[in-house]
Write a protein that binds this DNA or RNA. Structure first.
Lengths: 204, 204
DNA sequence: GCCGAGTATGAACGACCGTTCACGCAGAAG
DNA sequence: CTTCTGCGTGAACGGTCGTTCATACTCGGC
């Protein structure tokens, strides 16, 4: 048989999940391999049958949620027309729903990616930049076509600031959203879609 | 002489600064007392003449920047009338300027406060909540007086989401703002003031 | 029934962790 | 001049870190 990198995926997946939970609440550097092993009822050494290092587990977690984010964004974009207003609202709504559904994954990805070795960290940084560029592009497109306006803001190229405002609103929703609160995840996602339009002054 | 908790403040301050720089770029748990000692040309043991523990240094750093934030906010509020529109614009502008001026302090405070012992962490959480409440209160006040409107957003109590959108825009400005970029800190702060008004639909 | 591959154990590795402590030294106070 | 106090050193503390390894068990394929 060829070199088998993958292990019996069941255990590998349990380690992935436990790592996610622990990294989320203690941080990557604040989590030990022994805690991780305890969480999956294994010995520290056994972890290394499934991941070559603690860092590689962090990367697996972060890389996967970036894959999912990319999928969500491109599918959302594919499902809506080429009207920038509809695009922005749909993107902000869908991405908010995504962050509400995956609070631990996105928190670890956004907070602990700095602990990745430089090659993998660079790859993550590139992926993050691509998301920023996507939102900025929709805003710029909408401005060019007269649906959004930033001229009254008294600053040239306000698109960057506006797209970061939208993105930060979306990406940090899980820090305050309460699943037991009065507003549902769907409501909040839709609300963020509207707020994104306010920011771009594209409202109805 | 009475019990002297404070040490010769010069060295204490150098440790504070070095801790700030290191915690910022490596994270609290990713920073060693030995690295800290090296950065201030001291022996690890000497650190303990100035701070009783590594945790206490973290708390000193975080507590100070919270003090400064509170000062900025209350002075800003004192310097402007009681018009909610002016209040919101001034708060968003001043707080953005603050976060641009203190990127390391605010990043450490927002990212690493989770490593504080529970008593001190709770105190930090309370202070953060008070800032959130301040913005929410301005928005609610403005809505009551007809300057802001959230009724068209299709969600009851959109104030919370809107104030978090404003706060997250402001608090994370340092993650993308480039001091060497085309837009100055003052411009960006003013821009955030306007964007806050867009979010609250309080345009002029 | 044997074999080899996959997975686990438990002990151990050297390194490094936050913190302590006995001690030395400089300089202000008496 | 002596004493005391504040601040530093350097060595050491016990503990924990991420990782490795010899060994053993289990189980499907021959």
């Amino acid at each position: 048989m060829v070199v088998n990198i993958r292990s019996s995926n069941q255990t590998r997946e349990r380690i992935h999940d436990a790592g996610l939970a622990l990294f989320n609440e203690r941080g990557y550097t604040g989590t030990t391999v022994r805690e991780l092993a305890d969480a999956v009822d294994l010995t520290p050494g056994a972890i290394y049958n499934h991941y070559p290092s603690k860092e590689s587990l962090l990367f697996a977690i972060i890389d996967r949620v970036h894959d999912e984010a990319d999928t969500i964004l491109s599918e959302t974009l594919r499902g809506v027309g080429n009207d920038p207003v509809a695009q922005l609202e749909a993107l902000a709504c869908a991405f908010t729903a995504f962050h509400i559904a995956r609070p631990r994954e996105t928190r670890v990805a956004n907070r602990d990616y700095i602990y990745l070795p430089s090659g993998e960290r660079d790859s993550v940084v590139r992926r993050r930049r691509r998301v920023r560029a996507l939102f900025a592009e929709v805003l710029r497109d909408g401005e060019r076509r007269g649906h959004f306006s930033f001229g009254d803001l008294g600053s040239e190229d306000a698109v960057q600031a506006a797209s970061m405002a939208i993105l930060n609103m979306v990406v940090l929703v899980a820090e305050w959203f309460d699943p037991a609160g009065p507003r549902s995840a769907d409501d909040t996602s839709a609300l963020h879609g509207r707020l994104a339009l306010r920011i771009a002054r594209g409202g109805r």
